[in-house]
Nucleic acid binder design. Structure first.
Lengths: 336, 336
DNA sequence: CTGTTAGCGCATTCAA
DNA sequence: TTGAATGCGCTAACAG
């Protein structure tokens, strides 16, 4: 753990002033050829690495973007993160990720840690921070939000229309003849869960189908909830020909629950997910799901932050996130 | 984006010197009650947040740990990341994550970005950096390595014995009567892939079974490789009663490939994975797999770094990572 | 107990 | 073109 080499060391080695070192290293103004060469050689020789903290301190910019992710373990956020990485590639800004764990205290702590670190912008994935807290943040930093829609911050929200997505999914099932469709909800305190339930109800109403509360099971976005839902429905003798889970992970659980009962998918019961995680292409059978363009959401979040950073005066364009259904093999016509 | 408030602002507001502000905020030495109160009030009032860059600059420590992860999208690394988070909780150190994407240039760039940011320690998950590069890093920073074994750095390597793990898996299959066991390898340039193949061979030899190269298919750790392997073996008429995939993701792909061919698991063919990803509890059927204690590996990596940071003179204890098989439903006795 | 001062490493202004 | 000097925000001696 030897002391880091600084521009002072280079200056001494190259026999110039530290200003000359700084200038040649940054190309901020012309430097005589020979000195320039000596500085470069010395820097190379000594293995110089600029101290980002010092640079940030004097420049007032850290060239880093803080990304608050909820759970590095969730496949959902992972795809988004990849998009964010891609979106900042070559921009000179570096995204750093910290976890909020879906706990409001952890999230606040993480945001604080990030702002203390003088990040130049912020991307927040989901989370429990209030809309107002987010608006306050937006006033202080270039910001982008993934998976949330905050009134007043629309152009920086990268989120599909969850109501619309659930409507699409449910309608797809209805069009295939399904009349009794179970819905497995997400955590009711999360807006997207509520919206998906809403889309389910709207689709039923739109098709003239009555809403039956027994067909709704409150889940928590994890696989286990899918197993419990199936146990519940089948145990109670609730008849249904299709299940629409508010996310893919719960659909996986439901699939296992059905398997345990000897019920085939899609022969006996159709199964619909939401998110279209990469893994859903490889489940048995491959899962039909509402596609969220997660990678693109991350990429566009990066673009939005970059836009605010580089051209703060130009209006932020509205994001464009298409809503599609990935039709695979877990859904089929309802038996007559 | 108003200017940040600094201790100077607080000093002015509380009518004390900046040192008094610094002292009360850090509790580094006693301060008179009334001044203390005024400072605290002013800090609260103005919404003061210390500038971590400035603190780091003067203290020489940034209180952050850099974590190089390969692919935020991989379920493997995600579990480890959660463990790392847990391991640093309450320590005062904050882990920040950056991605290397399994590209040696990206990895070097990420490490550089991290070191420029003056991280106090480093955790590296997998990756393509050479053993020597890692040893050099270890000489400069408190370091921990997950999923690799570097000669000379044993106590800071959090990795199970891959040879042993594959031996265990293959032996399990052999004991259940399987004689023709296909092995689906990982990327041959990755050490763990090579080790797992080695363990497979050793188990065969140990049981007096001949090694048949036609039973080995070179994969790449992704689902698609599993599908290709099944296509290959079945297309070539290579007979086998069990498949041992070098990771769970390939096992998922193989499972789908078998399903496409109408082959049941485990009735017709047994399937064994490696890693025991959380999702493997919910596949159809739930997958038998070599368990890697990913969360614990992350946690112990954090502990190892903390140990080097806090008690640099004490020897680093050797990590303790038990090797177990998660026996589920994808493997059964071979038919006589 | 408290204020003044000297840097941490760097970019940048100001003279030369 | 160059070096000396200044200050980014903060902590840690150093004198009181």
């Amino acid at each position: 753990m030897t002391r880091n080499v600084t521009i002072k060391d280079i200056a001494r080695a190259a026999d110039v002033s530290i200003s000359t070192v700084s200038r040649t290293l940054n190309g901020s103004s012309a430097v005589a050829g020979d000195k320039r060469a000596r500085v470069l050689a010395a820097a190379q020789e000594l293995g110089y690495e600029p101290n980002a903290a010092a640079q940030g301190l004097v420049r007032g910019r850290s060239m880093t973007i803080g990304v608050l992710t909820q759970d590095i373990a969730s496949p959902f956020y992972n795809e988004v993160s990849r998009g964010i990485d891609a979106g900042f590639a070559g921009s000179g800004y570096q995204p750093i990720f910290v976890n909020g764990h879906w706990e409001i205290q952890d999230e606040s702590a993480a945001i604080t840690a990030l702002t203390r670190r003088q990040v130049d912008g912020l991307i927040i994935l989901g989370g429990r921070l209030t809309d107002q807290a987010l608006r306050d943040l937006a006033a202080r930093f270039p910001l982008a939000l993934v998976g949330r829609r905050v009134p007043g911050l629309e152009p920086m929200c990268l989120s599909i229309d969850n109501v619309q997505g659930a409507f699409l999914a449910t309608t797809h099932l209805i069009q295939l003849g399904h009349r009794r469709i179970g819905h497995l909800t997400g955590v009711p305190s999360q807006r997207d869960a509520v919206d998906r339930l809403e889309g389910y109800r709207l689709a039923l109403a739109d098709a003239g189908l009555a809403f039956d509360p027994r067909l709704v099971f409150e889940g928590d976005f994890n696989e286990t909830a899918g197993i419990l839902a199936v146990e519940h429905w089948l145990g109670q003798g609730v008849g249904l020909s299709a299940i629409f889970a508010a996310n893919d992970q719960m659909a996986y659980g439901a699939r296992l629950g059905l398997y345990r009962r000897g019920i085939r998918v899609p022969d006996d019961i159709s199964l619909m997910g939401f998110d279209d995680l990469p893994a859903s292409q490889f489940t048995l059978p491959p899962l039909t799901s509402v596609h969220q363009p997660l990678f693109e959401m991350g990429q566009q979040a990066a673009s939005a932050v970059l836009h605010q950073l580089l051209t703060p005066d130009e209006p932020l364009p509205h994001p464009d996130l298409p809503l599609t259904l990935s039709v695979r093999e877990s859904v089929r016509y309802a038996r007559p």
